[in-house]
């Protein structure tokens, strides 16, 4: 269990973090969402120990996270970086060794990852000679080479081509399935919706919403959507505030059972359910609140 507890951080007069807490259980994929400048990167940097917080702590499996454990984490910083004049294979293996693998294991893991990423034939090329998309794949390999036991990824999907997005998504799910807590930030809310078990929304240095994806959706219930095969117009007949969305009726603040009775009397009901908001809508709702 990885817990980020009550972080505070100021840069001069700018309050970047004002009591940020979030956590990821083993095997849980947590999406970290927020507008630009909300504090995602700052939070993740502090969690990875490259930035000091003013207060707050990072707890891993019940004890404060030390550098020894942190070494087994996988990290992708928001500003990507590789040695431009170092060979792809050498570079990935070097990071494997820095993270504690022995030479042979680092080599093996590098070969495996390059295979997965379709980069095996580029193993001897300098990183700077690769296309940007391929450099991103190398970056991904660097963060996964030591088979990390927890992942903190800052916008891992930005700049990735669709194939790399799939590889990255699969990698996240694999790590999580193996029991690793995973936290990643992204602006691609459809990806968050697809990959995450829970979502944390940050706004101006504060957590403004957090919870399981299903819980959040259920909490923000919207209108009742009714589709019924009839030539009659039920707008006035249905209870509450009724609006049309194409052929559908959207019922707000009305008694659902009465609405069902009226609809069924008019014709065959083919759809009768509460609309669920997308994560995007929840996010928009949360930040404007």
């Amino acid at each position: 269990m990885l817990e980020i507890k009550d972080l505070h951080k100021r840069f001069g007069d700018v309050v970047a973090l004002d009591g940020v807490s979030l956590s990821a259980k083993p095997g849980e994929v947590v999406g970290f969402v927020g507008a630009n400048g909300a504090g995602k990167t700052t939070t993740m940097r502090i969690a990875m120990g490259v930035l000091a917080s003013d207060s707050g702590e990072i707890v891993y499996n019940g004890t404060p996270l030390g550098s020894k454990q942190r070494q087994r984490f996988g990290y992708m910083p928001s500003e990507r970086g590789l040695y431009p004049k170092m060979k792809v294979g050498e570079q990935i293996a070097y990071f494997g060794e820095l993270h504690g693998l022995d030479k042979a294991a680092a080599k093996r893991s590098t070969a495996d990852l390059l295979e997965q990423l379709n980069l095996t034939d580029r193993i001897g090329d300098n990183v700077q000679d690769l296309s940007l998309g391929n450099q991103q794949r190398v970056q991904l390999a660097v963060s996964l080479v030591h088979d990390p036991e927890a992942l903190i990824l800052d916008e891992p999907f930005s700049g990735l081509d669709p194939i790399a997005v799939d590889v990255m998504g699969t990698a996240l799910k694999d790590r999580a399935a193996a029991g690793a807590p995973v936290i990643f930030s992204s602006h691609q809310l459809d990806l968050i919706e697809r990959l995450c078990d829970s979502v944390v929304i940050i706004g101006a240095g504060k957590i403004i919403a957090a919870g399981g994806v299903e819980d959040l959706k259920a909490r923000e219930v919207k209108e009742l959507r009714i589709r019924v095969e009839t030539i009659e117009d039920l707008t006035d007949a249905l209870p509450g505030t009724v609006t049309r969305d194409g052929d559908d009726y959207l019922v707000e603040d009305g008694d659902s059972q009465e609405a069902l009775r009226i609809a069924a009397a008019a014709g065959r009901v083919t759809h009768f359910a509460y609309d669920q908001p997308t994560i995007a809508e929840i996010f928009r709702e949360a930040v404007t609140r």
Binding site: R45, M48, G49, V50, R70, Q71, F73, Y75, P77, E79, G81, L82, Y83, F95, L98, H99, G100, V142, S143
Partner: peptide
């Protein structure tokens, strides 16, 4: 790259 280096 220093940001990743400094994590280990």
């Amino acid at each position: 790259i220093v940001e990743i280096l400094l994590t280990s």
